[in-house]
């Protein structure tokens, strides 16, 4: 399989002196579902934001389709960002606007200054937005204001906004951290099917190890800014959990795949 995304020696040092990432290397194949797990402060959010340069890495290379994202100028960066959808823990919607308005925001990367500022969308784009909302089970909410939705519904609006970008890669920063187990399952099922059916590569930050193992092809374990595990979900062992979290898997209430004892 060809690598869609490749990180080489990526490092990030914040102005405060915190070394959030040091020498991060991995590559993600096309159509892969990858989860990044690790304790709070491990650098997961920093890492995911270095990929679309919401945060500028201090060193290394981030290659998307072979092009180093870190060298792009402003215009080229915007064109690259169009190909990368992003989903946030707090949904990051304009809460006062309607669901469809928020979904169409995903098209703004394709617009010039005038059509973008005025929010002029083609009828195809509007049709597409409604189709995507249907596929996510939000047909009843299309014209509702976002502040009237539940967390799970808001996150689905967030997914719709990312999908309408027609991205190659979907970055998700703790998409289910603010949701109850039922809503979490709905969101994760949608993300999995986006990956399998649409062939979009998905990279998810997660706090729930069991969820990561259930849904992912590959798991990347991080600790203190470094990758300490990079392998299949089945390959996770009790020691792996210990390496990542610094506590025994059983203490964390995690059951390790098929090999779990007793």
């Amino acid at each position: 399989m060809t690598a869609l995304l490749e990180l080489k020696h990526v490092a990030k040092k914040y102005n405060t002196g915190t070394m959030a990432l040091s020498d991060v290397n991995f590559s993600v194949s096309k159509g892969e579902f990858v989860s990044i797990i690790g304790p709070s402060g491990a650098g997961k959010s920093t890492l995911i934001r270095c990929i679309n340069r919401l945060i500028d890495a201090s060193g290394g290379e981030v290659r998307l389709d072979g092009v180093n994202v870190l060298n792009l100028n402003k215009r080229a960066l915007q064109q690259t960002r169009v190909k990368i959808g992003m989903i946030f823990q707090h949904y990051n919607l304009v809460e006062r606007l309607s669901v469809i308005d928020n979904v169409l925001h995903g098209r703004l990367g394709y617009k010039n200054v005038i059509t973008g500022s005025l929010g002029i969308y083609t009828s195809d784009e509007k049709k597409q937005a409604i189709e995507i909302l249907h596929s996510l089970g939000l047909e009843e909410q299309v014209y509702k204001r976002c502040d009237q939705l539940s967390g799970g519904q808001k996150q689905r609006v967030g997914i719709a906004r990312a999908l309408i970008q027609e991205p190659k890669l979907l970055l998700c920063d703790e998409p289910i951290a603010s949701l109850d187990p039922n809503a979490s399952k709905v969101i994760m099922d949608h993300l999995r099917s986006i990956c399998s059916r649409l062939g979009i590569t998905v990279l998810v930050n997660l706090h729930q190890v069991d969820v990561a193992m259930k849904y992912s092809d590959t798991i990347i374990g991080m600790r203190k800014g470094s990758v300490v595990y990079n392998g299949s979900a089945q390959g996770m062992k009790a020691e792996t959990i210990f390496d990542i979290y610094g506590s025994e898997a059983s203490d964390l209430g995690i059951e390790i795949g098929v090999t779990h004892a007793s």
């Binding site: 992003m86 990367g109 200054v113």
Partner: peptide, 19 residues
């Protein structure tokens, strides 16, 4: 929050301000 999302989607400065 919403500004971060639009930046990530590749929108330009004025688009982000007005939308």
């Amino acid at each position: 929050h919403a500004v971060e999302a639009l930046k990530a989607a590749g929108a330009g400065y004025f688009t982000i301000v007005f939308r």
